[in-house]
Each structure stands twice: as C-alpha cells, then as structure tokens.
Design a protein around this nucleic acid. Sequence first.
DNA 1: ATGGTTTTTACTGCGTC
DNA 2: GACGCGGTAAAAACCAT
Length: 330
Amino acid sequence: MPDAESGDRDPDQEPPVESDELACPECGGTRFQEDERHGETVCANCGLVLSEGAIDQGPDWRAFDPQQRQERARAGPGRTIMRHDHGLGSQIGYGRDAHGKNVRGKTKAQLGRMRRYHRQATYRPGADRNVVRALSEIERITHALNLPDTVAETAATMYRRAQAEGFLHGRSIEATAAACVYAAARFQQLPRPLDTVADQAQASKDDLARTYRRLSEKLQLAVPITYPADLLPSFTSKLDLPATVQERARRLIEASEEERLVGKNPASVAAAALYRAGQQLGHGVTQKEIAGAAGVTEVTVRARLKDLAEEPADEDASKDPTPDDAPVAV
DNA sequence: ATGGTTTTTACTGCGTC
DNA sequence: GACGCGGTAAAAACCAT
C-alpha cells in the first residue's frame, strides 16, 4: 500500500511544472519572467537571460494565396540558432541594383570586390566551420533520437556557450555536440539514456560520459535529475505499448518507496515499471524486450521489480473524473 | 587511489509450450 | 528443446571522497 504522503514526491526539489518546455540551464529553475520591453525571458530564480530578441518570428503580413505570398514577402526566413550566423547573414547579389536595373562596367567590378571582402569578413573559416559541423551533428542526433527541435536549439545554445568559454580546445566536436544534446534533452524533461545517445553519436559511451561531465562542470549546468517516469514515453513507443500501460507504470513508480529507487539507473526503474504494468494489464512484454529497449540487462530489470511497488498508486481522481459518477439529469 | 554501491556477465534450475 | 523467468556469485563500472 502506498504511504499517505506519496502524493507529493521530492519535497526538497522544486516541482518542474511552471514551464514544461524549459528549465534554466544555469540553476535548473523552471519559473520565468517575461520582460516585454526588452523582449527577454529571464529565469525568475537566478536572473539568467534565457532568450532575448523574442521577436515575432513570423511575417508581419498575411497572404491568402501563393501570389500574394510572393508579392508581400520582404524578408528571408526567421532568425534561428541552428545556423552558424543565426540565419541573419547578408549577401551581395549579382546583376541588378536596388532598382532592378542591370549593373555593368565599373560598378559591376566594384560589387565583385565587395562581395569578396564581405565573404572573407563574415565567414570566419575556423570557428564558424566548426559550428556548422557541430550544428548539423546536433540536428542529426536529435532527430535520430526522436527529440523535438527545441532540444536541438537548446543544445545549440549550449554548444555556443561551450565554444565561447574555450571548452572545445583539445576536444572532439562530435562528442561535445552529443553531450550538448544529452544535456539539452534532460533539461526539457525528455531524457534519453546515455548509451542511447552514444549509439547515435560519433563517440563512444565513455567519451560521451566524460565530455558531458566536463561540460556540465565548465558551464555549471544544473541538469535536473532524470526521473524514471520521464523515460516511460520513449520506451512505451519503442515497444508499441498502449498508453494505459504507460500510465499504470507511472503510478507504479509513484507508489514505490522513493528510498529504494534513488541511486538506481532510472532507465531500469522505468523498464521494470513498464514490465509489471504490461503484465497486469495483459500486454505482456518479455523482460528481454523491455531490457533491450531500456538499455539494461534482464537481471537489472528483475532487481528493480523487487524495489517497485506491487500495485499502482491511487488513480488521480481530479485528472479525469469518471463520467459514471457524474449526476445525470433526467 | 579507494571503497561502497550498482550493474553486468555468466551460469543454473524450474516451469511451460 | 526453446523460451521466459528467477536466482546467485563474481567481475566490472560508477561515483563520491
């Protein structure tokens, strides 16, 4: 039976509910203040500016058909962290001036020179080329892990910070990029196990673990701990289990004694919970399958089964009031 | 480096299909 | 006999100090 206070877990930790999209990379806080005037989002806890220039990324015009779209478009795509120049680079075009007239002769030659200088000035081969490589690696890993673009963006921000602080010296871009994705995923409560990330990355697990550790030290990342429940969705979809199993697994974890689960690999806890929930609901998966999905061994799953509650916590009545109880007007 | 804890590896036995 | 499951012992990995 679950104890009375099982409803509110981790009393010492702030409940990560205020913002379900983001946690502050500095302090892990999840409460944010919007500074409209400056267009900034600021962590309410430590004051770190999380995003600035929070401009409306969409166009300021509307188009109702492709022709209007063509006519009204003035600017290129929106600002994005996923380009080495944030998508804001400028280019000097060919052939025509601002009035649409052809340019020739002296002016044309001048434009050519300007183009060359511009290119040389804006595209710094060293740093930017590496950023380009890192960003494409971040994007690749993120997608391979079925993580949303917001994770890639957080990872990209982290990577830039890492580079700005000289973290890259003597370290591989690939491992650092992967470490950023791993950390960013955890920040957004969409953790992936370390070895799952390593599988997709161009780095060994050891390499990734070491790099991640150093990275979080260097950037003072307050990465929130991984809750087993956060891993459930990923495993559930891997095994094609119904949502009811996932929900029951979540309640099984809730009903368990917390002391027995701390320090244990959260993936193993999630795996055991899904296994037991599946059994109880007649959607049996084998220990082998669930262990494979979670990246642990069957032995470990069995060990966790002993730590896990036998029966799920009480149904959260407030969440979905059962229609049967509702008074029926005749 | 060290020592405590957790996880993995390897192996065994039992029941079921 | 193959498979799933449960267990154990020892080695390996991990982590804080």
